[in-house]
């Protein structure tokens, strides 16, 4: 950031950090609750929010707040894993395409484009079902659809790096290609990677929820937000709004905080943008 940065410009970062910290604490609390949040108690179903149950109970008599916090852990962890794997895969493909032979580029980019040509959610859904519904399958489905996104963006940057002086210099002195890739190109891709990772984290959270929402992600009774929103749908119009609205707001808050954070990372790189 440049010198004109004032506290006024910095507050979004602080706010997003605070929100993210709250989510992490929520997730931590959730891990202590563990299985307890899944135990059904049919004697206290659909209670409205009260002092005892701050966000009420759901159709099976489980405390919505506990489930939202367990869900925070699940969403954050799995989205992080999906994005990390997707980024790693995308990076490898991009390096091979950008620095390797031209035929390699063609061979690798063809399947990338094919995957991009799919309706993303449908592909993730089909993969998740094929592997047997569950969170792991959902993560694999998401990773497969994320890899090409990273690969395409990073490949462009990698290609550009070839004409950069430091890469040309390294090539001239005869360094092996993999060393150039690791020592020079990867750091060059760093900022783009960071921005992409942050941007895809938010969408991974949403896709995960969407998969559970359509019923191919989390298995019941896992407290995943998308599955909870789906549960809430049937109660929403009969008056028990809290079952579906609470996890939705939690999801929204997390993605917004992450996006604000992403913006700031991006702004650091390019002060003019937002």
């Amino acid at each position: 950031m440049n010198g004109t940065t004032s506290a006024w410009r910095r507050w979004p970062v602080i706010a997003s950090m605070v929100i993210l910290a709250v989510y992490l604490m929520l997730a931590l609390a959730g891990t202590f609750l563990g299985d307890q949040a899944n135990v059904a108690d049919v004697t206290r179903t659909l209670r409205p929010p009260s002092a005892e149950h701050l966000l009420g109970t759901d159709g099976e008599g489980r405390d919505v707040l506990s489930r939202v916090s367990v869900g925070a852990g699940i969403s954050i962890m799995l989205a992080a894993i999906s994005v990390a794997l997707g980024a790693a895969g995308g990076l490898i493909v991009a390096l091979a395409c950008g620095l390797g032979a031209r035929w390699l580029d063609r061979v690798l980019m063809a399947p990338m484009n094919a995957v991009l040509a799919f309706p993303q959610l449908l592909l993730a859904m089909a993969i998740a079902i094929a592997l047997g519904s569950g969170l792991t399958s959902a993560v694999i489905g998401i990773v497969v659809t994320i890899i090409p996104v990273f690969a395409v963006t990073l490949r462009g940057e990698a290609l550009r790096s070839r004409s950069e002086a430091f890469v040309e210099a390294a090539t001239t002195i005869g360094l092996p290609r993999w060393r150039i890739a690791l020592r020079h190109v990867v750091p060059y891709l760093g900022t783009t990677m960071t921005v992409q990772i942050a941007a895809n984290f938010g969408s991974a959270v949403i896709t995960l929820a969407a998969l559970s929402y359509v019923g191919v992600g989390a298995r019941p009774p896992t407290a995943e937000w998308g599955a909870m929103i789906n549960d809430g749908l049937q109660h929403a119009v009969s008056g028990q709004w809290w079952v579906g609205v609470a996890p939705g707001i939690a999801l929204l808050g997390l993605v917004i905080a992450v996006n604000i954070f992403t913006d700031q990372v991006r702004a650091r790189r390019r002060p003019a943008g937002w």
Binding site: G244, L252, V255
Partner: peptide, 22 residues
Amino acid sequence: VRLFALVGLGSPPFWVGLVLIV
């Protein structure tokens, strides 16, 4: 605008639909 865009970017469409209906 920025706030709305952030909210929009963070909203799962199925949930927005639900809230709009309600």
